[in-house]
Amino acid sequence: MGPSRDRRARKACGVRTRWHTVDDGEFFCPDCGGDRNYRRRTGRRRLVVLGLPVLPRGAEDPVVECTACRGHFAPGALDHPTTAGLAAMLSEAVHTVALVVLAAGGAEARSVRETAVEVVHAAGFPECTEDQLTAHVGALGSGREVLAELELHDKLAPLASQLAVAGRESLLLGGARIALADGPYTGREREVLAAAGRLLELGAEDVDRLLAQARTPS
């Protein structure tokens, strides 16, 4: 049997997988390095003889298939946010840090409110105003510090594994800038900024360094 005949025989007989698309959407493709469309697929293997399926050979593990590069990835690939999703998470985190610092007692000073607005605008909320920030802090009521820290946990904890160190440090520095707008840190401001640092998985020494760095004029 010649080489070409061997190849035809291999094509005629073997195990083939029949894929079925369960759902689709957009995800961050590790191979493409950007946002792409995906298909989440399940599959069943069959022994094929002369082009005809004859015997089942069990199920394939579910995969996420990139429609651009056709790469197959474990379903956990969908846990990574898209580029747009990560940008939205970061903007919301900056907004929340600003609220927490304001809730720690700085909302009365106009310089603090103005700095908070600048930081939030730079993070992607250009429509945010001083009145909106103070109203949000006021809406938290008498337990505003506790509620603000709960919101801080919800917004920062998921970001810790997604951002590089520089990104996490920048987030904390934004909060420090707001706290310093009316003078040195108060005890409460230090507490909430330290809590933010822990949620961002920054060490205590790094937090101290960043809080000192924020005091140094650029």
Score class of each variant (00 low, 15 high):
residue 130 E to N: 12
residue 218 S to N: 07
residue 196 A to E: 08
residue 198 R to T: 15
residue 116 A to P: 04
residue 218 S to T: 09
residue 195 A to S: 11
residue 195 A to Q: 14
residue 124 G to N: 10
residue 28 F to K: 08
residue 6 D to P: 01
residue 120 V to R: 03
residue 94 V to A: 09
residue 56 P to V: 05
residue 16 R to W: 03
residue 52 L to S: 14
residue 143 G to D: 10
residue 213 Q to R: 14
residue 29 C to H: 03
residue 82 T to L: 15
residue 75 P to L: 15
residue 123 A to E: 00
residue 205 E to M: 07
residue 9 A to P: 03
residue 85 G to C: 05
residue 158 P to M: 06
residue 130 E to Y: 06
residue 70 R to Y: 13
residue 197 G to H: 06
residue 40 R to C: 01
residue 64 V to M: 12
residue 166 A to S: 11
residue 21 T to G: 11
residue 156 L to R: 01
residue 29 C to Q: 05
residue 65 E to P: 02
residue 113 R to S: 01
residue 24 D to R: 08
residue 216 T to F: 05
residue 83 T to S: 12
residue 12 A to W: 06
residue 121 H to S: 13
residue 207 V to E: 00
residue 95 H to F: 08
residue 126 P to K: 11
residue 120 V to H: 07
residue 32 C to E: 09
residue 50 L to T: 08
residue 102 L to R: 04
residue 32 C to N: 04
residue 145 E to L: 13
residue 59 A to V: 04
residue 150 L to D: 10
residue 56 P to E: 03
residue 139 A to S: 13
residue 133 L to M: 09
residue 111 S to T: 14
residue 156 L to H: 01
residue 204 A to P: 08
residue 105 G to K: 10
residue 88 A to F: 06
residue 181 A to K: 05
residue 68 A to S: 11
residue 155 K to T: 02
residue 36 R to Y: 01
residue 109 A to M: 07
residue 105 G to V: 10
residue 78 L to I: 07
residue 110 R to E: 14
residue 121 H to V: 11
residue 161 S to Q: 09
residue 202 L to H: 05
residue 181 A to H: 06
residue 8 R to L: 13
residue 118 E to V: 05
residue 170 S to V: 10
residue 210 L to W: 06
residue 140 L to I: 13
residue 158 P to D: 02
residue 119 V to R: 12
residue 25 G to N: 02
residue 140 L to A: 06
residue 201 E to A: 13
residue 75 P to T: 09
residue 124 G to F: 08
residue 18 R to K: 08
residue 17 T to C: 07
residue 9 A to S: 08
residue 24 D to Q: 09
residue 181 A to V: 07
residue 217 P to M: 02
residue 73 F to D: 02
residue 18 R to V: 06
residue 190 R to N: 14
residue 176 A to K: 03
residue 3 P to W: 13
residue 168 R to D: 13
residue 213 Q to T: 14
residue 101 V to W: 03
residue 195 A to K: 15
residue 38 Y to A: 00
residue 3 P to Y: 14
residue 172 L to C: 10
residue 163 L to R: 05
residue 36 R to S: 04
